[in-house]
Structures are given as C-alpha cells and as structure tokens.
Computed example of a mutant assay.
Amino acid sequence: FAVLVLATKYVSVGSIAAAGACPLFAAYYFLYATFAPAAWVCTTVAALTVVWAHRGNIERLRAGNERRIGQKDKEA
C-alpha cells in the first residue's frame, strides 16, 4: 500500500492493490500454513468488496480525473 501510494500519489491505487494482494497472502497462510479455507473465502470476499467500493475511483483513474495526494481542488 505505502509503496504504491508514495510512488503514484494515489491512495486509491494503494488500496486497490492491497485488496488484490490480500487474498494471495491469505491463500498461503489460510490454505497452506493453517488450512482454514473458510477464512480464505472471507478474506477474498472482503477484498472483492474493497475493490467494488473503489469502482468510482477506478473509473476516475481510467479517465485521468483522480486527485493525487496534495493536489488542490479545481476552482469552480
């Protein structure tokens, strides 16, 4: 999260990437180390929910309209 936010100045990029990585790390921990598949499913659902919640940010990123950290609002 922090590396991507610092590199891109977009908090939404860091959040979406962290949500995408979470099921991957959870797969190792919950499916390999402790074998708790229900916990992995819950983690994956939570990650998908985070990405779904950021769908507006994704559209603004694609359009080039997403605000960066420190960027001032445009005057109306």
Results as ranks from 00 to 15, higher is better:
Ser12His: 07
Ala53Tyr: 03
Gly14Cys: 06
Ile69Lys: 09
Trp52Arg: 05
Tyr29Ile: 04
Gly70Gln: 05
Leu4Thr: 02
Ala39Ser: 12
Ala53Thr: 08
Ala46Ile: 06
Lys9Glu: 10
Ala27Trp: 07
Ala27Pro: 00
Lys9Ile: 00
Lys9Cys: 07
Ala38Gly: 05
Ala17Tyr: 06
Lys9Met: 02
Phe30Ala: 03
Leu24Val: 15
Cys42Tyr: 10
Ala21Trp: 11
Ser12Met: 07
Ala17Lys: 03
Leu6Tyr: 10
Ala39Asn: 08
Leu48Cys: 15
Cys42Val: 10
Asn57Val: 01
Ala36Leu: 14
Val41Ser: 01
Gly70Glu: 08
Ala63Leu: 13
Ala39Leu: 13
Asn57Gly: 05
Ala18Met: 07
Leu4Trp: 10
Phe1Asp: 05
Val51Tyr: 06
Ala53Glu: 06
Cys22Ile: 01
Ala38His: 07
Ala2Leu: 12
Lys9Ser: 06
Val3Met: 12
Arg67Val: 07
Ser15Arg: 09
Val41Ala: 09
Pro37Met: 11
Phe1Gln: 01
Leu24Pro: 02
Tyr28Trp: 15
Leu61Val: 11
Arg62Lys: 13
Arg67Tyr: 15
Val51His: 05
Asp73Gly: 11
Thr8Ser: 14
Tyr28His: 14
Ala21Glu: 11
Val45Asn: 00
Pro37Cys: 09
Phe35Met: 02
Pro37Ile: 12
His54Ala: 08
Val41His: 02
Trp52Val: 07
Leu48Phe: 14
Tyr28Gly: 05
Arg60Gly: 08
Glu75Cys: 11
Tyr29Gly: 03
Leu31Ala: 02
Ala76His: 12
Gly64Asn: 09
Val11Lys: 03
Ala46Phe: 14
Tyr10Asp: 02
Phe25Ala: 04
Thr49Phe: 15
Phe1Gly: 07
Ala47Asn: 01
Ala7Pro: 03
Phe1Met: 07
Val5Met: 11
Asn57Phe: 10
Gly14Met: 04
Arg55Ala: 10
Ala2Phe: 12
Ile69Met: 15
Ser12Tyr: 02
Tyr29Lys: 04
His54Leu: 08
Asn65Met: 14
Ala26Gly: 09
Val41Cys: 00
Lys74Thr: 13
Val3Thr: 06
Ala76Met: 11
Arg68Ile: 08
Val51Gly: 05
Arg60Gln: 14
Pro23Val: 00
Gly70Ser: 09
Lys9Gln: 10
Thr34Tyr: 03
Ala46Asn: 04
Tyr28Thr: 07
Trp40Gln: 01
Leu24Arg: 01
Ala76Asn: 12
Ile69Cys: 15
Lys72Thr: 13
Ile16Arg: 01
Trp52Pro: 00
Ala38Lys: 09
Trp40Ser: 03
Leu61Ser: 04
Leu31Gly: 00
Arg62Trp: 13
Ile58Ser: 14
Ala7Phe: 09
Gln71Tyr: 04
Ser12Asp: 13
Ala2Gly: 01
Ala18Lys: 02
Leu31Lys: 01
Leu4Pro: 02
Lys72Phe: 11
Thr8Trp: 08
Leu31Met: 06
His54Pro: 09
Arg68Asp: 09
Ala33Trp: 09
Phe30Gly: 00
Glu66Ile: 08
Arg60Leu: 11
Ile69Tyr: 13
Leu6Met: 10
Leu61His: 09
Ala38Thr: 13
